[in-house]
């Protein structure tokens, strides 16, 4: 894996430099050209980050703290509203259900993406004829534009002419209004999202499996371990670091998911599949009269959730490197 490779080269370099340099001044000062030169190479990306990440984020926070109308959005001069927008959002009767949908959507997607991805990774790790080609083909759902996947699933799940209902009908089950009934819409978008996420989990877990030394398995085979035991005693514990990172990244990505839900159901019917991301979009762009303030407030709540997950991820990554 790249990360481990990278750290090892880094330490090697530092060791080499430390040995070569005389004692006294820190070795990096001797070998490195001036820091200004290095920052010359970093300047474009730094300016870029400030202009195209930090500033939009700042604008977003500002949006959430002022009371904007369409007029003041264009001309400026919106009055400062403090935390009013946040209060509006939190006391909205839709807030509870929407937060709940977001959690269900994220949780269910992660559980199924990960377990199916893991099963497929284990299967493809057995190296049979064509396994490479087939593994590459399974990547297709992950590479397709989300609007393509979402519209394909919309048609598959169409109430009257969708293939899924036709298949259910063939075994005597009544048609389900997948996308148009409040009871099923969330399930439908979760199904589509699981399908999209499986390849990512497969690829990352597969690369993790390749990092497990073959000798471990050979030794356990000599000891007469069953394949079930081998999975729980060897594969699963050794794969824990990779699994943790896969799940956390999955969490960060899934919290962000917007396209799939918006294209398939627009969060409907009657908000039954709305998540925080689609709600924020609906408030800002989905209505005739945009409500940027509350929309931005929801966006900022979402970013706090993503950042918490992100910080946990970085902590775990660091700890694994220190080991």
């Amino acid at each position: 894996m790249l990360s481990t490779k990278r750290t090892s080269t880094t330490t090697q370099d530092q060791d080499g430099a430390a040995k070569a340099a005389p004692p006294g001044p820190p070795p990096s000062r001797v070998r490195r050209p001036s820091r200004w030169l290095a920052w010359g190479f970093l300047a474009p990306v730094t300016i870029y980050l400030a202009a195209f990440y930090a500033y939009p984020l700042y604008r977003n926070v500002e949006l959430s703290l002022r009371e904007y109308t369409v007029r003041s959005f264009v001309q400026g001069g919106a009055p400062f509203a403090g935390l009013d927008n946040y209060r509006t959002v939190l006391s909205d009767p839709a807030f509870g259900p929407t937060l709940w949908h977001t959690l269900i959507f994220t949780g269910a997607s992660l559980v199924f993406q990960f377990s199916i991805g893991m099963a497929l990774a284990l299967f493809f790790h057995q190296h049979f004829p064509l396994s490479r080609t087939l593994r590459a083909l399974i990547l297709v759902p992950w590479l397709l534009p989300l609007i393509v996947s979402a519209s394909t699933w919309s048609w598959l799940l169409n109430s009257d002419s969708g293939l899924v209902n036709a298949a259910l009908g063939a075994v005597g089950i009544d048609p389900v209004n997948w996308l148009t009934s409040p009871g099923w819409s969330l399930t439908s978008v979760i199904i589509a999202n699981i399908w999209i996420g499986i390849p990512f989990n497969l690829v990352v877990l597969y690369s993790g499996l390749q990092g497990i030394p073959v000798e471990m398995y050979e030794a356990s085979a000599l000891d007469g371990a069953s394949s079930w035991q081998r999975f729980w005693r060897i594969t699963f514990p050794l794969l824990r670091p990779v699994s943790t990172i896969t799940l956390l990244l999955g969490l960060i990505y899934t919290l962000k998911v917007f396209d799939i839900v918006w294209i398939m159901t627009r969060g409907g019917p009657t908000g039954s599949s709305a998540t925080l991301a689609t709600w924020s979009y609906r408030l800002g762009f989905g209505n005739m009269l945009p409500e940027f303030g509350p929309g931005a407030a929801i966006g900022n709540l979402l970013i706090v959730m993503a950042l918490i997950a992100g910080l946990i991820y970085i902590r775990i990554e660091r700890r694994q490197h220190l080991r």
């Binding site: 970093l42 977003n60 917007f258 966006g299 979402l302």
Partner: peptide, 29 residues
């Protein structure tokens, strides 16, 4: 490896986690 490099890497990592809808709203404004 300039001083401040690791901090920049960290910022880049965080930047990847920002939901698109938030960026979109900021860009729109």
């Amino acid at each position: 490896r300039p001083p401040g490099g690791p901090a920049l890497s960290f910022v880049l990592l965080i930047a990847q986690m920002i939901p698109g809808i938030i960026m979109a709203m900021g860009f729109y404004a």
